[in-house]
Design a protein around this nucleic acid. Structure first.
Lengths: 139, 139
DNA sequence: TGCATAGTTGCATAATAGTGCATATAATAA
DNA sequence: TTATTATATGCACTATTATGCAACTATGCA
């Protein structure tokens, strides 16, 4: 059970981080649901980092989740008009450095690994898995 | 001259503060321009505080200003579709504790003091002026 | 020229938020 | 039941942000 925070500033606070915006943008463009490992392969960011950002989005009421075995699928909460309007707004904002276009491309490629619409594999790009992350990819 | 930051996260960051949202909401509801003293009397927050928040909104490209004597009028930047869409979205978000309704009421009352559409008086509620702010109103 | 006033800002402080690392939890499969 | 793997999190650290106070600038008017 998650609490939907209706405070406007909390919603915008949740959207004030580039990684969280990348997550929201992928989901609102594709109208998909996705699990953590799929985000890791799409955004090329470490698992623990994305896990935390997803948690914040959930706490704010922008994401909801459903568990399926080891996989947890995250999707946008569309329960109100203002949330739908908000996602549309986000998609209208330019993507000057093409970051989002790249994310989307990787996401769609990753979706090809789905089996009957379900994710059956973990993180493919091992560089961004929790274990054995090479120094060369750290910030 | 102000720089318009097109980064989505910067825009949402600017909206992640309750005071800044109250400013945006007043302006987008009334389609007005207003000066600092009018915001002080509408939001009942100290002048230096509002001055700083307005500065942030300007730096983010959400507000523009024009000077008229000692008064500086601030208005929403409406130069792009996504900004217009964004302001609409903000107005759709509920106002559960009625904070915004109260702000608006005070703002409209304050507008009655305009003379030929111009602000001719400073802060009326002296409690929230920079000087002589009583201890009882501090957080 | 000097005063009142609209607005700005430097500084110190407190609170919040993001990150990396390592480790923990939970569920599946062998 | 043991290993594997998808996901979560405690901790330390750093960076950013908001605030109050006081002093500042800038403009208009007497």
């Amino acid at each position: 059970m998650h609490i939907i925070d209706i405070q406007a500033e909390t919603i915008f606070q949740a959207l004030s981080d580039p990684i969280r915006l990348r997550i929201i943008r992928i989901l609102s463009t594709t109208n998909e649901e996705a699990c953590l490992c799929e985000f890791v392969d799409s955004l090329l960011e470490p698992q623990y980092k994305l896990s935390r950002h997803i948690k914040i989005l959930k706490q704010t009421g922008l994401l909801s989740a459903s568990k399926d075995g080891r996989w947890i699928y995250h999707r946008l909460v569309m329960s109100t008009d203002y949330l739908k309007h908000l996602y549309q707004t986000i998609l209208m904002i330019p993507d000057p450095d093409g970051q989002y276009a790249q994310d989307l491309k990787r996401f769609q490629k990753r979706m090809l690994l789905r089996d009957s619409g379900r994710c059956r594999v973990g993180v493919q790009n091992k560089d961004f898995q929790t274990d054995s992350m090479p120094k060369s990819h750290k910030n």
